[in-house]
């Protein structure tokens, strides 16, 4: 754009300078050309005004208004026989017309996009909001509230014509709503937790009745019952996702107490113990850094299972050794989770 401006300016100045020494016919030619130039600037302004009226925005309106003022000034300067100044103002008016038109064209697409996205957001919010309230999950509720607050800001920005920024803010609102939905729809839900809790409790009880006399199984069942208690505590504190994870752990531990289905192999058990030891260092550091008593207790429990596994392996008791190390690995993962 600047390149064009310079070319025209030099051309016009040459014409204008030449005009000083030219005869009246040449002077008339300069006047005609300036008049045509200003007239065309007027056309460009009208074109830009059409674009701006299709997609109004405070910034493009302000730039267009300034361009109109420049255009009016160029007409007056031309009438008062100041062609050089008239040209400069007309050129600036053209720049303004182009800038305003460009903003308007960009905005016309974004305005539509924002309106549709806002409508879709409202639909999703209705659907997700209800489910989040039902789930009672504190975290999901907080994401929902944050999302609604962002969406309100997006609407405010839309009202002010700040479409690009409104789209950005709305994107954040959509993301937060998605997170709330993921927690509430997929993992949360007090109804679902109650059902899962009952199912797990019955399952652990049944395994206890059937295998409680086996000392190795009893050890695993103690861990399972501890996981069950942790699930209830987490649910009471509103951490439903964590509660569901603890329930899953309780079921896995109870299953192992009942019947490991893996093929018994000494080398495989050794590999599992090695796996445990490799993870142990990282998890214990995380647990220590977190300062969580609960994570520390679960970690201790995991270590006890690991030691029993090693001892049972030395005695060539492969089946109980496998149960113990698997339980240890599960508890290690749970400690890692609690430390987070």
């Amino acid at each position: 754009m600047r390149k064009h401006t310079n070319t025209i300016l030099i051309t016009l100045l040459l014409v204008f300078a030449g005009g000083v020494f030219a005869d009246s016919a040449q002077a008339q030619s300069v006047t005609d050309r300036l008049e045509a130039y200003i007239q065309q600037t007027g056309e460009m302004l009208r074109h830009a005004a059409d674009l701006v009226s299709d997609a109004p925005n405070p910034r493009s309106v302000r730039i267009l208004e300034q361009a109109r003022l420049d255009h009016q000034r160029s007409i007056k300067l031309a009438q008062s026989d100041q062609p050089k100044m008239a040209f400069a103002h007309s050129e600036r008016a053209r720049q303004g017309a182009r800038q305003a038109g460009r903003i308007a064209r960009e905005l016309s697409g974004d305005t539509e996009r924002l309106q549709r996205r806002l409508e879709r957001y409202m639909e999703l919010r209705e659907r997700v909001g209800e489910r989040v309230h039902e789930s009672g999950d504190e975290r999901a509720l907080r994401f929902l509230r944050e999302s609604e607050s962002q969406a309100r800001r997006a609407r405010e920005l839309q009202k002010q014509g700040d479409i690009a920024l409104a789209l950005q803010v709305l994107e954040g609102a959509e993301d937060l709503l998605g997170r709330a939905a993921r927690i509430a729809f997929e993992e949360g839900g007090k109804d679902r937790f109650e059902r899962e809790l009952e199912r797990t409790r019955v399952f652990v009880e049944r395994i206890s009745n059937e295998h409680g006399n086996d000392p190795h199984a009893a050890d695993l069942l103690t861990s399972a019952k501890m996981a069950l208690r942790r699930a209830e505590e987490a649910a009471a504190q509103g951490h439903l996702v964590r509660a569901l994870k603890s329930l899953q752990l309780a079921r896995r531990l109870a299953s192992r107490a009942a019947a490991p289905d893996e093929r018994l192999d000494e080398a495989a058990i050794e590999r599992q113990i090695e796996r445990f030891d490799q993870r142990m260092e990282r998890v214990s550091t995380r647990v220590r850094d977190s300062g969580s008593d609960r994570a520390g207790q679960v970690l201790q429990r995991a270590l006890q299972h690991r030691e029993r596994a090693a001892s049972l392996l030395d005695q060539a008791k492969l089946e109980p050794a496998l149960r113990q190390i698997k339980a240890g690995l599960d508890l290690l993962a749970a400690a890692d989770d609690l430390a987070g």
Partner: peptide
């Protein structure tokens, strides 16, 4: 054509920074 009504766009590099936070 400098007298064209067509709008011109110029290439650009951009940076977009976004921060959202909630501290309880």
């Amino acid at each position: 054509d400098p007298d064209s009504f067509a709008l011109e766009y110029t290439d650009y590099s951009y940076l977009a920074f976004w921060l959202m936070g909630n501290w309880m």
